[in-house]
């Protein structure tokens, strides 16, 4: 707004201070760097992977072209990650709500600390735990599932060792639990007190208050955390490589078999050369595209409800 009646003059440029310039350059540089790295990775994957895509189908592993080679890997990767996500999300939301709204402050802080510690456990340790402790424990459960739910295609003959895709998925669920929990906890804690009180004043019980005020407010954050977890599960290498006894694609989650892209790459990369190397890199490209798509979908989900998120009000 201007009260001047004279024609608008160009405002004199603000003096350029060296500190401002340096900081602006630094932040621009950092922002550009991340794009450059991302583009560089995509370029590397595409260039090195192309030979596998264009090679004679007979020469690719499996002898039926790259598509037939990578599809079972994609399915194994997606199935294990989705199971991990489905198992971990409700538990993570429950833990986050316990920390943010149910536990006395001191207990909540302690539980939050323990969950964060879980995130610091290296994935190779999770892998060993899954193989040495969890897999034998799950054996009887798998047997029970086979006997009682065997009519479902994904509960087939149970493996005696427990080194199955389902075991790997459960370990993945434990691994992604901390990230989903901590993101959810942060957004739940930020629920405006005003909205919580609005619900309580309408005669909401504690759970109803959480359902009316806390969960809707936190949903975008929970979705975001879940997608971060899914991204981690999709890319998780060591745990799956250790636990899973790899094999051909199978609907049976209780038996050995199935592979995931990261474990396939990790197990074969050291000895690969030539076309085999290209195949693995192209598989990496596919994984890269899947995670990109997951993130886009997550953003779309979050943005779709933006008008109702309270961010605009």
């Amino acid at each position: 707004m201007t009260t001047s009646t004279r024609p608008a003059r160009r405002r004199p440029a603000a003096p350029r201070r060296p500190g401002d310039l340096a900081f602006a350059g630094l932040s621009l540089g950092s922002a550009s760097l991340i794009l450059l790295v991302l583009a560089g990775v995509a370029f590397f994957l595409a260039r090195e992977g192309v030979p596998a895509l264009t090679a004679d189908p007979e020469e690719v592993t499996g002898g039926a072209g790259f598509g037939r080679y990578v599809l079972p890997l994609v399915i194994g990767t997606v199935i294990s990650s989705v199971i991990a996500m489905v198992v971990a999300t409700p538990v993570a939301v429950g833990i986050a709500l316990f920390i943010s709204h149910y536990a006395p402050r001191r207990v909540g802080t302690a539980v939050g600390f323990v969950v964060d510690l879980l995130a610091a456990v290296p994935s190779v340790v999770f892998g060993m735990w899954g193989l040495a402790v969890l897999a034998p424990q799950l054996g009887p459960l798998f047997g029970w599932l086979e006997r009682n739910l065997g009519f479902l295609p994904f509960f087939g003959e149970a493996s005696a060792t427990g080194r199955t895709l389902l075991t790997a998925s459960i370990v993945l669920a434990v691994m992604i639990l901390p990230i989903i929990t901590s993101v959810s906890r942060e957004v739940f804690l930020q629920t405006p007190r005003l909205h919580e009180e609005a619900a309580l004043a309408l005669g909401a019980t504690k759970w109803e208050m959480i359902r009316t005020a806390v969960l809707p407010f936190g949903t975008p954050g929970v979705v975001g955390g879940t997608m971060l977890g899914l991204g981690r599960a999709l890319g998780e290498t060591m745990a799956v490589a250790i636990i899973l006894a790899p094999g051909a694609l199978s609907w049976n989650l209780l038996g050995s078999g199935n592979k995931t892209i990261p474990s396939e790459i990790a197990l074969n990369f050291p000895e690969a050369a030539g076309l085999r190397l290209s195949e693995l890199i192209a598989a990496g490209l596919v994984l890269f595209l899947i995670t990109l798509a997951v993130n886009l979908v997550a953003r779309w989900i979050v943005a779709r409800r933006a008008a109702f998120s309270g961010a605009g009000g």
Binding site: E197, A213, P216, G310
Partner: peptide
């Protein structure tokens, strides 16, 4: 019932 100092409609609801 209660009405608060600042208007607090639930943001996720119509």
């Amino acid at each position: 019932g209660m009405v608060f100092q600042r208007p607090n409609p639930f943001p996720t609801m119509s």
